[in-house]
Simulated scan of single mutants.
Amino acid sequence: MRKFVLLLLVGLLITPLADATKKKIYVWRNADGVLVFSDSPQPDVKSDTVDVSSTPNIVKSVDTAILENKSGPAQEEKLKVEILKPAQEETIRDNSGSVYISGAIKPSFKRGLSVVLKLDDKKVKGPQKSAVFILRNVDRGEHKVQLEVWNSSGKVIAVSDPVTFFLHRGSVN
């Protein structure tokens, strides 16, 4: 009799453990069309079931070697700098003489780099961490802008093509 009770208890204990490894998830859409997930079915709602095992999901480690910069300082990545605004030979009409310069650096702007703006071959702004500049009170006429990218030691590592623009300021005369 003891053996029978013992076998009965073991059987009752094993059944929930086997059941714990497989669970059902009920899935349906509510009145708003939102997908709803629940561990219990809803009455009067047509739902699909998804069997879920409780075994842990083990994800293999990801190789992050591509994120590390394995090239030394002598092998810096080739950057490309370009001026997006103003366009080549664009006429800007602004009586205050304000000019907005916007540039892009590709493939990406890295830590330690800075940008310098040159207007008519003279450094006028920078170094700064952004390739967007605002010039104020620029004289009317033809001007040339160019962007330079500097590394952390102040060495020029990339230069944009020069962009020529024309500034038109209204005259009182």
Rank of each mutant, 00 (worst) to 15 (best):
V45S: 05
F37W: 10
K129L: 07
A87S: 15
K60Y: 10
Q146V: 03
D32V: 15
I92Y: 00
D94L: 05
K3V: 09
G103M: 04
V138T: 03
S171A: 08
R93T: 13
T15H: 13
L117R: 05
V52D: 12
S98R: 14
S153E: 12
P86S: 11
K78W: 14
L119C: 05
F133W: 02
S40V: 13
I101N: 03
I83A: 03
L17P: 08
F166T: 05
S61N: 12
K24C: 09
F166D: 01
Y26F: 10
E76V: 10
V116G: 03
W150C: 12
L6C: 06
L79S: 01
L7Y: 14
D39L: 09
G103Q: 01
P86H: 02
S96P: 07
E148K: 08
F133M: 00
D48Q: 15
E82K: 15
E142F: 07
S38T: 02
K23S: 05
Q42C: 10
T91G: 07
R2F: 07
K70Y: 08
V59S: 13
N137Y: 07
L167T: 01
P16S: 04
A31M: 04
V27N: 04
H143Y: 02
I105W: 04
V10C: 15
N57E: 07
P162S: 03
N95K: 09
S98A: 11
K46M: 14
K23R: 07
G33L: 08
V172T: 13
G141A: 04
E68C: 09
K125P: 04
G97T: 00
K110Q: 08
A65I: 05
G112W: 04
Y100F: 15
S98W: 10
S98F: 13
A104Q: 12
S47Y: 06
S71V: 11
A74H: 13
F133T: 00
S40W: 10
V5S: 15
L135D: 00
D51R: 09
A18T: 06
V5A: 13
L147N: 04
L9S: 00
F4T: 15
L7E: 08
S98I: 13
D121P: 09
A31D: 12
I83R: 00
V124F: 10
G103F: 00
S171P: 04
I58L: 10
R136F: 13
R169M: 00
K23H: 07
W28T: 03
K110A: 08
F37S: 01
R2E: 09
R29L: 14
L35D: 02
Q75H: 10
N95C: 03
S40E: 15
N95A: 06
V159F: 10
E142T: 15
P107H: 05
S96Y: 07
S96W: 04
L119F: 08
L9Q: 03
G103D: 09
I92C: 01
P127E: 00
I92R: 05
L79N: 12
V149R: 06
G97D: 00
K24I: 03
K110F: 06
I58E: 06
D51Y: 11
N57F: 10
N151M: 06
K22A: 05
N95F: 05
G33W: 12
A104M: 14
A104H: 15
N30K: 04
K60T: 05
K155Y: 14
K24A: 09
L7R: 12
S152T: 07
